[in-house]
C-alpha cells in the first residue's frame, strides 16, 4: 500500500531532514580522522562517519528520485549534498555543533546515536517500503554506534575527576539542543503521534540508564535551542558547508 504522502513535498523534506542529520554528523565525525586520542578510537569514529555517509546517500538517492519524478529538476545525491545552501538544510542543530573535546564529541555521538537508533526502529515498520528498508538497514549499524558511545559515556562519566568534569561541562554545553530532536516539524507527520512518543520515551529512558551508570545527571534547565529543522541554523553550519562543498562549487561536476 502506497502512502498518500509519497510524492508530496513534506515527505521529500522529511527524507532530506534525515539525510542532512546523517551527512552533517558524518562530517563532524570525519574531523577526528587522524586526530583520535588512540588509534582504535580514531578508527571507530571514522567507521561511524562512513556508516553515516552511507545512510545519508540512501536518503538523498531516494529523495532525488521523488523530486525528479514530481518536477523538472534533475537532482542527484551529490547535488543535494553539495549544492544546497545552509537555509535548505534541515538537520537538527545538535549535529552541527563543533566537536569540542573528546568528552563533548562522545556525548553528542551518544545523544544522536540513541535518537537515530529508536527513530529507525520505528521507521522500519512504516508503510513506505523504501524508507522502511533504509531504516532497517541503518538500525543494524546504529546498534554499534549506540553501544560504543554509551560505553564511552560511562567510562568518562564514571572515570577520573577530570573526565567527569569534562562530561558534566559537555552536558551543560549541549543539553539545550536535545529538545529540538523531539519538536516535531510539519514534514515529520509521517510518524504517528504514538511513534513520536515511543521514540522520545525510549530515548529518555536510555539516556537515564546510561547517565545513571556514568554517575551523570540530566540538567534541570528547560532552555531550548531550536531552528535547524526549519533551516535556521547556527553559524557553524556555514563553515561546515564552506569546507564540504568547496570542491563541487569551485569545480562543478568534478569526479575522482
Amino acid at each position: 500500500m502506497k502512502i498518500k504522502a509519497k510524492n508530496d513535498s513534506a515527505f521529500i523534506q522529511y527524507l532530506l531532514h534525515l539525510g542532512d542529520n546523517a551527512l552533517i554528523m558524518s562530517h563532524r565525525n570525519s574531523e577526528w580522522c587522524g586526530h583520535g586520542p588512540a588509534l582504535e578510537q580514531d578508527i571507530a569514529l571514522t567507521n561511524i562517519a562512513l556508516d553515516q555517509i552511507g545512510q545519508a546517500r540512501n536518503f538523498y538517492q531516494y529523495a532525488a528520485v521523488l523530486i525528479n519524478e514530481s518536477s523538472n529538476e534533475k537532482q542527484t545525491e551529490d547535488s543535494l549534498a553539495y549544492l544546497r545552501d545552509a537555509w535548505d538544510f534541515k538537520n537538527c542543530l545538535l549535529v552541527e555543533l563543533p566537536n569540542g573535546d573528546w568528552g563533548q564529541t562522545i556525548l553528542k555521538q551518544f545523544l544522536i546515536s540513541a535518537y537515530q537508533y529508536y527513530l529507525y526502529l520505528e521507521l522500519q515498520n512504516i508503510q513506505d517500503e523504501q524508507l522502511a528498508a533504509i531504516a532497517a538497514k541503518s538500525v543494524k549499524e546504529l546498534n554499534y554506534h549506540l553501544r560504543w558511545s554509551a560505553d564511552w559515556v560511562m567510562r568518562l562519566g564514571d572515570g577520573t575527576s577530570e573526565s567527569k568534569k569534562r562530561m558534566t561541562d559537555a552536558i551543560d554545553a549541549v543539553w539545550s539542543y536535545t529538545y529540538e530532536l523531539f519538536e516535531v516539524a510539519e514534514y515529520e507527520n509521517i510518524l504517528s503521534v504514538e511513534m513520536q512518543c515511543k521514540i522520545r520515551e525510549a530515548w529518555i529512558e536510555k539516556i537515564k540508564t546510561v547517565f545513571g551508570k556514568a554517575t551523570l545527571a540530566i540538567p534541570n534547565s528547560q532552555w531550548k535551542q531550536r531552528g535547524g529543522k526549519l533551516g535556521v541554523h547556527t553559524e557553524h553550519l556555514g563553515y561546515i558547508l564552506a569546507e564540504m562543498q568547496f570542491l563541487q562549487r569551485a569545480y562543478p561536476g568534478s569526479e575522482w
Partner: peptide
Amino acid sequence: ISEFGSTSCKAL
C-alpha cells in the same frame, strides 16, 4: 580491542 576495525565489517 575495539568493535570497529580496518573496514566496516571487521572488529579488532
